[in-house]
Write a protein that binds this DNA or RNA. Sequence first.
DNA 1: CGCATCATACCGACCAGTCGGTATGTATCC
DNA 2: GGATACATACCGACTGGTCGGTATGATGCG
Lengths: 208, 208
Amino acid sequence: MNQSKSDSRTRLLDATLKVVRQKGYCAARVDDICAEAGLTKGGFFHHFKSKDDLALAAAEHWGEQVTTFFETAPFQALDDPYERLLAYVAFRKSLLEGEPHEYACFAGTIVQEAHETHPTLSEACARTMNAHAQTLEADIEAAARARGVSADARSLALHIQGAVQGALILAKANGAAAGAECFDHLRRYLELLFASPQQKHRTKRKRS
Amino acid sequence: MNQSKSDSRTRLLDATLKVVRQKGYCAARVDDICAEAGLTKGGFFHHFKSKDDLALAAAEHWGEQVTTFFETAPFQALDDPYERLLAYVAFRKSLLEGEPHEYACFAGTIVQEAHETHPTLSEACARTMNAHAQTLEADIEAAARARGVSADARSLALHIQGAVQGALILAKANGAAAGAECFDHLRRYLELLFASPQQKHRTKRKRS
DNA sequence: CGCATCATACCGACCAGTCGGTATGTATCC
DNA sequence: GGATACATACCGACTGGTCGGTATGATGCG
């Protein structure tokens, strides 16, 4: 009892993340997820009333996992916001190890695949992506202030997320090394943005 | 007669691109594609021996469409390689109009979704992505030479593709405007890269 | 007992792929 | 020309398997 809201339930959520990151949402069979979690369908439908319901809960679960994973990552120990931002990129680059499903983004995969077929699910995943992006904003703002450049923190944080998602796709397409090079470019962009005191850079461009 | 290799076949290929960009590969039913093409399943299996076979042919078709689409795009009229490169980014940004399935990338969608489940299909799509990226290399090299900076054209071209893919995901997640901002960042990166004559920038970083 | 947590067995819809058939050429030989 | 023979293109009913979901029962715990 207890184990805080049933152990099987979180095992199902973890299994969902794994299988969906491997095969995508549509191709992820309920039986696959059950097998991964060491359950049968009867047990599954005791915890979730449908596959979509499970996916929604898994999106929440993914968001929480990502949050704690990056909150407790070693690069957070750095003092300088700018260095911490670069270290974030380096850390994400270092995650490109092993099989694609180990570094793939659950949220990005689902947004890509299920945007039109499962709008609510896609939106839930979009929220986790945005929440994660938001964790970068404070450092971006602080770094910009410290270095005398102006930057739209929200826009830049989202761009970083976009670049990360793109790097993951490239890693799938051309191997982890190709994805890693994208992170190098992203780092260089940040370096150039924050290392030009002679001229203010506006990262946001509203329509005139 | 004939319409050169059967009109229905290309209609099926076009329908495949449309439906897959909407719903993803797994969720795209053969019947959906047939309905979109104005055929029945009997006719479909006369032209292709399986859904996977169709997808492979559609990947080729996508590659050809992309090639001619960008070859004949207005921005190609520009003379300066650097301006043409920036115009490419602006052009891609301008494509973020209408519904997501109108600007989504068939190849990117499939690489993301089918990397582990359909390796050959994923590789075919990866090839079209790489081929498209390669079309930027000449301009990158020329622009770098003209401006006295050193750049790994292949790496930068791939990064641009990655950034584009990421922008498309962000557009799905947060609306077209969010994707557009990513293209602004990408443009700024190129501007900063190519506008620093005082210092050589290395865009490629091999492990030591 | 009563409730929660599962397993087993099964249903029904859906869907990729098959198959028999038709309609329209088209090539060939008389 | 026209009759035979064959190819191409397509239809639509059907099948066999898959998969989300259900029904029911077993087990254990308080």
